[in-house]
Computed example of a mutant assay.
Amino acid sequence: MTSPVAHRTGGNLSRTLLTALAPLTWGTVYLVTTELLPPGHPLFAGLLRALPAGLIALAVTRTLPRGAWWGRAALLGTLNIGLLFPLLFVAAERLPGGVAATLTAAMPLMVALLAVTLLHERPSPRGIAWGVIGVAGIGLVVIGPDAAFDGVGVLAGLAAAATLAFGVTLTKRWGRPAGVGPTAFAGWQLTAGGLFLLPVTFLAEGAPPAIGPAEAFGHLWLGLVCGLVTFVLWFRGVTTLPVTSVAVLGLFSPLVAALLGAVVLGQTLRPVQLVGFGLALAAIVAGQLPTRRRIRAARPAPAAAAVSRAAEGNGAGGRRR
Protein backbone atom coordinates (compact mmCIF):
# COMPACT_ATOMS: atom_id res chain seq x y z
CA MET A 1 0.00 0.00 0.00
CA THR A 2 1.36 3.42 -0.96
CA SER A 3 1.88 5.74 2.01
CA PRO A 4 0.06 9.10 2.09
CA VAL A 5 3.41 10.91 2.19
CA ALA A 6 4.67 9.15 -0.94
CA HIS A 7 1.37 9.70 -2.71
CA ARG A 8 1.39 13.41 -1.86
CA THR A 9 5.04 13.74 -2.88
CA GLY A 10 4.32 12.21 -6.28
CA GLY A 11 1.35 14.52 -6.82
CA ASN A 12 3.39 17.54 -5.78
CA LEU A 13 6.14 16.57 -8.22
CA SER A 14 3.81 16.60 -11.22
CA ARG A 15 2.26 19.91 -10.14
CA THR A 16 5.72 21.36 -9.53
CA LEU A 17 6.90 20.40 -13.01
CA LEU A 18 3.84 21.99 -14.61
CA THR A 19 4.19 25.12 -12.48
CA ALA A 20 7.87 25.40 -13.42
CA LEU A 21 6.87 25.74 -17.07
CA ALA A 22 5.59 29.24 -16.26
CA PRO A 23 8.90 30.85 -15.14
CA LEU A 24 10.79 28.83 -17.75
CA THR A 25 8.62 30.45 -20.40
CA TRP A 26 8.80 33.88 -18.78
CA GLY A 27 12.54 33.75 -19.36
CA THR A 28 11.81 34.60 -22.99
CA VAL A 29 10.19 37.94 -22.05
CA TYR A 30 13.53 39.77 -21.85
CA LEU A 31 14.59 38.65 -25.33
CA VAL A 32 11.19 39.34 -26.93
CA THR A 33 10.93 42.76 -25.29
CA THR A 34 14.33 43.99 -26.42
CA GLU A 35 14.40 42.35 -29.86
CA LEU A 36 10.81 42.49 -31.13
CA LEU A 37 8.75 45.10 -29.29
CA PRO A 38 8.90 48.84 -30.04
CA PRO A 39 10.81 50.69 -27.28
CA GLY A 40 9.22 53.30 -25.07
CA HIS A 41 5.82 51.63 -24.64
CA PRO A 42 6.05 49.35 -21.57
CA LEU A 43 2.46 50.03 -20.49
CA PHE A 44 1.09 49.17 -23.92
CA ALA A 45 3.11 45.95 -23.95
CA GLY A 46 1.73 45.02 -20.54
CA LEU A 47 -1.83 45.87 -21.63
CA LEU A 48 -1.66 43.62 -24.69
CA ARG A 49 -0.14 40.84 -22.63
CA ALA A 50 -2.96 40.91 -20.07
CA LEU A 51 -6.35 42.09 -21.32
CA PRO A 52 -6.88 39.99 -24.49
CA ALA A 53 -5.70 36.84 -22.69
CA GLY A 54 -8.02 37.52 -19.77
CA LEU A 55 -11.03 38.12 -22.01
CA ILE A 56 -10.31 34.87 -23.87
CA ALA A 57 -10.24 32.97 -20.57
CA LEU A 58 -13.53 34.53 -19.46
CA ALA A 59 -15.17 33.71 -22.81
CA VAL A 60 -14.03 30.09 -22.60
CA THR A 61 -14.97 29.46 -18.97
CA ARG A 62 -18.00 31.79 -18.68
CA THR A 63 -17.29 32.13 -14.97
CA LEU A 64 -17.34 35.45 -13.11
CA PRO A 65 -16.38 36.24 -9.51
CA ARG A 66 -19.04 36.28 -6.82
CA GLY A 67 -19.38 38.23 -3.60
CA ALA A 68 -16.08 39.16 -1.99
CA TRP A 69 -14.17 37.71 -4.91
CA TRP A 70 -14.89 40.77 -7.05
CA GLY A 71 -12.67 42.83 -4.77
CA ARG A 72 -10.13 40.05 -4.25
CA ALA A 73 -9.80 39.40 -7.98
CA ALA A 74 -9.33 43.12 -8.61
CA LEU A 75 -6.59 43.38 -5.99
CA LEU A 76 -4.81 40.20 -7.09
CA GLY A 77 -5.05 41.23 -10.73
CA THR A 78 -3.57 44.62 -9.93
CA LEU A 79 -0.66 43.11 -7.99
CA ASN A 80 0.08 40.05 -10.13
CA ILE A 81 -0.65 41.68 -13.51
CA GLY A 82 -1.52 45.38 -13.61
CA LEU A 83 1.48 46.66 -11.66
CA LEU A 84 3.84 43.78 -12.38
CA PHE A 85 3.84 43.86 -16.18
CA PRO A 86 4.76 47.54 -16.72
CA LEU A 87 7.33 47.43 -13.92
CA LEU A 88 9.00 44.44 -15.56
CA PHE A 89 9.00 46.14 -18.95
CA VAL A 90 10.44 49.35 -17.49
CA ALA A 91 13.19 47.37 -15.76
CA ALA A 92 13.92 45.39 -18.93
CA GLU A 93 14.16 48.56 -21.02
CA ARG A 94 16.29 50.65 -18.63
CA LEU A 95 18.60 47.92 -17.30
CA PRO A 96 20.60 45.09 -18.82
CA GLY A 97 18.44 41.97 -18.66
CA GLY A 98 20.75 40.44 -16.08
CA VAL A 99 20.46 43.32 -13.63
CA ALA A 100 16.69 43.39 -13.96
CA ALA A 101 16.52 39.62 -13.47
CA THR A 102 18.66 39.73 -10.34
CA LEU A 103 16.44 42.37 -8.75
CA THR A 104 13.25 40.43 -9.46
CA ALA A 105 14.95 37.25 -8.19
CA ALA A 106 14.59 38.71 -4.70
CA MET A 107 10.90 37.73 -4.86
CA PRO A 108 11.34 34.34 -3.08
CA LEU A 109 13.00 36.08 -0.13
CA MET A 110 10.14 38.56 0.08
CA VAL A 111 7.59 35.73 -0.05
CA ALA A 112 9.39 33.90 2.78
CA LEU A 113 9.13 37.03 4.94
CA LEU A 114 5.53 37.81 3.98
CA ALA A 115 4.47 34.24 4.76
CA VAL A 116 5.30 34.93 8.40
CA THR A 117 2.80 37.80 8.67
CA LEU A 118 0.14 36.97 6.07
CA LEU A 119 0.12 33.17 6.30
CA HIS A 120 1.16 32.92 9.96
CA GLU A 121 3.96 30.52 9.08
CA ARG A 122 7.03 30.24 11.26
CA PRO A 123 10.13 31.69 9.55
CA SER A 124 12.25 29.06 7.86
CA PRO A 125 15.98 29.77 8.24
CA ARG A 126 16.68 27.12 5.64
CA GLY A 127 14.30 28.71 3.15
CA ILE A 128 15.74 32.19 3.70
CA ALA A 129 19.30 30.86 3.38
CA TRP A 130 18.54 29.12 0.09
CA GLY A 131 16.75 32.24 -1.12
CA VAL A 132 19.91 34.28 -0.50
CA ILE A 133 21.98 31.61 -2.28
CA GLY A 134 19.57 31.69 -5.22
CA VAL A 135 19.80 35.47 -5.59
CA ALA A 136 23.60 35.28 -5.34
CA GLY A 137 23.64 32.59 -8.01
CA ILE A 138 21.47 34.66 -10.35
CA GLY A 139 23.75 37.64 -9.74
CA LEU A 140 26.80 35.61 -10.77
CA VAL A 141 25.02 34.39 -13.88
CA VAL A 142 23.63 37.61 -15.26
CA ILE A 143 25.53 40.63 -13.91
CA GLY A 144 28.67 41.35 -15.88
CA PRO A 145 31.44 43.89 -15.27
CA ASP A 146 29.82 46.35 -17.68
CA ALA A 147 26.41 46.27 -16.01
CA ALA A 148 24.72 49.66 -15.75
CA PHE A 149 22.55 50.58 -12.77
CA ASP A 150 19.89 53.06 -13.83
CA GLY A 151 18.05 54.41 -10.78
CA VAL A 152 14.56 54.22 -12.26
CA GLY A 153 15.24 50.74 -13.58
CA VAL A 154 16.49 49.52 -10.19
CA LEU A 155 13.40 50.86 -8.43
CA ALA A 156 11.15 49.28 -11.07
CA GLY A 157 12.86 45.89 -10.66
CA LEU A 158 12.56 45.92 -6.87
CA ALA A 159 8.96 47.13 -7.05
CA ALA A 160 8.15 44.31 -9.50
CA ALA A 161 9.56 41.77 -7.05
CA ALA A 162 7.57 43.29 -4.17
CA THR A 163 4.23 43.41 -6.02
CA LEU A 164 4.62 39.81 -7.20
CA ALA A 165 5.57 38.68 -3.70
CA PHE A 166 2.45 40.31 -2.23
CA GLY A 167 0.30 38.92 -5.03
CA VAL A 168 1.61 35.37 -4.66
CA THR A 169 1.26 35.40 -0.87
CA LEU A 170 -2.29 36.77 -0.93
CA THR A 171 -3.22 34.27 -3.64
CA LYS A 172 -2.02 31.50 -1.34
CA ARG A 173 -3.86 32.95 1.65
CA TRP A 174 -7.21 33.27 -0.12
CA GLY A 175 -6.87 30.17 -2.29
CA ARG A 176 -9.20 29.56 -5.20
CA PRO A 177 -12.99 29.60 -4.79
CA ALA A 178 -14.69 26.22 -4.72
CA GLY A 179 -15.82 25.14 -8.17
CA VAL A 180 -13.61 27.66 -10.00
CA GLY A 181 -10.93 26.20 -12.24
CA PRO A 182 -7.43 27.62 -12.77
CA THR A 183 -8.31 29.01 -16.22
CA ALA A 184 -11.18 31.10 -14.87
CA PHE A 185 -9.07 32.14 -11.88
CA ALA A 186 -6.26 33.31 -14.17
CA GLY A 187 -8.79 35.00 -16.45
CA TRP A 188 -10.16 37.08 -13.58
CA GLN A 189 -6.72 38.38 -12.71
CA LEU A 190 -5.55 38.96 -16.28
CA THR A 191 -8.75 40.88 -17.04
CA ALA A 192 -8.56 42.92 -13.83
CA GLY A 193 -4.91 43.73 -14.47
CA GLY A 194 -5.66 44.68 -18.08
CA LEU A 195 -8.54 46.95 -17.09
CA PHE A 196 -6.26 48.63 -14.55
CA LEU A 197 -3.70 49.24 -17.30
CA LEU A 198 -6.17 50.43 -19.96
CA PRO A 199 -6.68 54.07 -18.87
CA VAL A 200 -3.18 54.39 -17.43
CA THR A 201 -1.64 53.31 -20.74
CA PHE A 202 -3.40 55.85 -22.91
CA LEU A 203 -2.95 58.66 -20.40
CA ALA A 204 0.78 58.02 -20.02
CA GLU A 205 1.78 56.85 -23.50
CA GLY A 206 -0.85 58.29 -25.81
CA ALA A 207 -1.51 56.60 -29.12
CA PRO A 208 -0.25 53.02 -29.45
CA PRO A 209 2.84 52.39 -31.58
CA ALA A 210 2.76 50.95 -35.06
CA ILE A 211 2.74 47.16 -35.09
CA GLY A 212 4.42 45.22 -37.87
CA PRO A 213 4.76 41.45 -38.31
CA ALA A 214 7.65 41.15 -35.84
CA GLU A 215 5.89 43.23 -33.19
CA ALA A 216 2.65 41.29 -33.73
CA PHE A 217 4.46 37.98 -33.20
CA GLY A 218 6.07 39.34 -30.05
CA HIS A 219 2.76 40.51 -28.61
CA LEU A 220 1.04 37.21 -29.48
CA TRP A 221 3.80 35.24 -27.79
CA LEU A 222 3.69 37.38 -24.66
CA GLY A 223 -0.11 37.43 -24.52
CA LEU A 224 -1.12 33.88 -25.35
CA VAL A 225 1.87 31.84 -24.19
CA CYS A 226 3.59 34.01 -21.55
CA GLY A 227 0.21 35.35 -20.46
CA LEU A 228 -2.76 33.02 -20.67
CA VAL A 229 -1.15 29.56 -20.70
CA THR A 230 1.58 30.19 -18.17
CA PHE A 231 -0.56 32.10 -15.67
CA VAL A 232 -3.09 29.26 -15.64
CA LEU A 233 -0.24 26.91 -14.67
CA TRP A 234 1.25 29.44 -12.23
CA PHE A 235 -1.91 30.17 -10.27
CA ARG A 236 -2.77 26.47 -10.17
CA GLY A 237 0.62 25.87 -8.57
CA VAL A 238 0.35 28.79 -6.15
CA THR A 239 -2.99 27.54 -4.79
CA THR A 240 -1.97 23.86 -4.46
CA LEU A 241 1.75 23.87 -3.55
CA PRO A 242 3.70 25.41 -0.64
CA VAL A 243 4.05 29.10 -1.42
CA THR A 244 7.80 29.28 -0.78
CA SER A 245 8.40 26.30 -3.07
CA VAL A 246 6.49 27.99 -5.87
CA ALA A 247 8.24 31.32 -5.32
CA VAL A 248 11.74 29.86 -5.70
CA LEU A 249 10.73 28.40 -9.08
CA GLY A 250 10.81 31.99 -10.31
CA LEU A 251 14.61 31.72 -10.43
CA PHE A 252 14.19 29.69 -13.62
CA SER A 253 13.21 32.86 -15.50
CA PRO A 254 16.58 34.69 -15.36
CA LEU A 255 18.42 31.42 -15.99
CA VAL A 256 16.48 30.90 -19.22
CA ALA A 257 17.06 34.56 -20.15
CA ALA A 258 20.82 34.08 -19.72
CA LEU A 259 20.80 30.88 -21.79
CA LEU A 260 18.87 32.61 -24.58
CA GLY A 261 21.35 35.46 -24.50
CA ALA A 262 24.17 32.98 -25.04
CA VAL A 263 22.40 30.94 -27.74
CA VAL A 264 20.53 33.67 -29.66
CA LEU A 265 22.58 36.81 -29.05
CA GLY A 266 26.00 35.16 -28.92
CA GLN A 267 26.77 36.20 -25.36
CA THR A 268 29.55 34.24 -23.63
CA LEU A 269 29.05 32.31 -20.42
CA ARG A 270 32.16 32.59 -18.25
CA PRO A 271 33.19 30.04 -15.59
CA VAL A 272 31.86 32.26 -12.79
CA GLN A 273 28.46 32.25 -14.51
CA LEU A 274 28.46 28.45 -14.57
CA VAL A 275 29.06 28.50 -10.82
CA GLY A 276 26.10 30.84 -10.49
CA PHE A 277 23.97 28.45 -12.53
CA GLY A 278 24.86 25.68 -10.12
CA LEU A 279 23.97 27.77 -7.06
CA ALA A 280 20.65 28.88 -8.52
CA LEU A 281 19.67 25.35 -9.55
CA ALA A 282 20.65 24.05 -6.10
CA ALA A 283 18.39 26.70 -4.51
CA ILE A 284 15.49 25.70 -6.77
CA VAL A 285 15.86 22.00 -5.94
CA ALA A 286 16.30 22.68 -2.22
CA GLY A 287 13.17 24.81 -2.26
CA GLN A 288 11.13 21.80 -3.43
CA LEU A 289 12.33 19.40 -0.73
CA PRO A 290 9.74 18.88 2.01
CA THR A 291 10.55 20.24 5.43
CA ARG A 292 9.98 18.19 8.57
CA ARG A 293 6.84 20.19 9.26
CA ARG A 294 5.42 19.33 5.82
CA ILE A 295 6.23 15.64 6.30
CA ARG A 296 4.56 15.60 9.72
CA ALA A 297 1.51 17.38 8.26
CA ALA A 298 1.28 14.81 5.46
CA ARG A 299 1.33 11.87 7.85
CA PRO A 300 -2.01 10.74 9.30
CA ALA A 301 -2.54 11.17 13.01
CA PRO A 302 -1.74 8.05 15.10
CA ALA A 303 -5.41 7.39 15.88
CA ALA A 304 -6.39 7.75 12.22
CA ALA A 305 -3.55 5.46 11.19
CA ALA A 306 -4.66 2.80 13.72
CA VAL A 307 -8.24 2.95 12.43
CA SER A 308 -6.98 2.64 8.85
CA ARG A 309 -4.86 -0.42 9.71
CA ALA A 310 -7.76 -2.02 11.55
CA ALA A 311 -10.05 -1.45 8.60
CA GLU A 312 -7.51 -2.98 6.25
CA GLY A 313 -7.15 -5.97 8.58
CA ASN A 314 -10.91 -6.49 8.70
CA GLY A 315 -11.09 -6.23 4.96
CA ALA A 316 -8.35 -8.80 4.54
CA GLY A 317 -9.99 -11.10 7.11
CA GLY A 318 -13.28 -10.77 5.35
CA ARG A 319 -11.70 -11.74 2.06
CA ARG A 320 -10.00 -14.78 3.67
CA ARG A 321 -13.33 -15.93 5.06
Rank of each mutant, 00 (worst) to 15 (best):
M1V: 13
T2Y: 09
T2I: 14
S3V: 11
P4L: 11
T9H: 12
G11V: 15
G11Y: 13
T16V: 15
A22M: 15
L31K: 13
V32F: 10
T34H: 14
G46P: 02
L47P: 09
L47R: 01
L51D: 00
P52A: 03
P52I: 06
A53L: 08
L55G: 04
A59S: 05
T63W: 03
G67E: 05
W69G: 07
W70K: 05
R72G: 05
G82K: 04
L83K: 00
F89E: 04
A92G: 10
A92T: 14
R94C: 04
G98T: 12
V99K: 09
V99Q: 06
T102N: 07
T104V: 15
T104W: 06
A105S: 13
M107W: 08
M110R: 04
V116N: 11
T117V: 15
L119R: 11
R122K: 14
R122Y: 06
P125R: 12
P125A: 08
G131P: 06
G134T: 00
G139V: 09
G139P: 04
G151Q: 04
G153Y: 01
V154I: 13
A156N: 03
A156S: 07
A160I: 11
A160C: 09
A162E: 05
G167K: 08
L170P: 09
A178Q: 13
V180C: 11
F196A: 05
F196L: 12
V200T: 04
V200L: 09
A204F: 03
G206H: 01
G212I: 01
G212M: 02
A214M: 12
E215T: 14
W221R: 12
L222C: 09
F235G: 08
V243D: 04
V243F: 03
V243P: 03
S245M: 10
A247P: 10
V248A: 02
L249S: 01
L249E: 00
L251Q: 03
L251G: 06
P254N: 06
P254L: 05
A258K: 04
L260I: 07
V263L: 06
L265N: 08
Q267P: 09
T268K: 12
L269H: 01
R270Q: 11
F277Y: 07
L281T: 01
T291H: 08
R292C: 11
R292Q: 14
I295D: 05
I295P: 04
R296S: 14
A298C: 10
A301D: 13
A301Y: 07
P302L: 10
V307T: 09
A310V: 05
G313F: 03
A316H: 01
R321T: 06
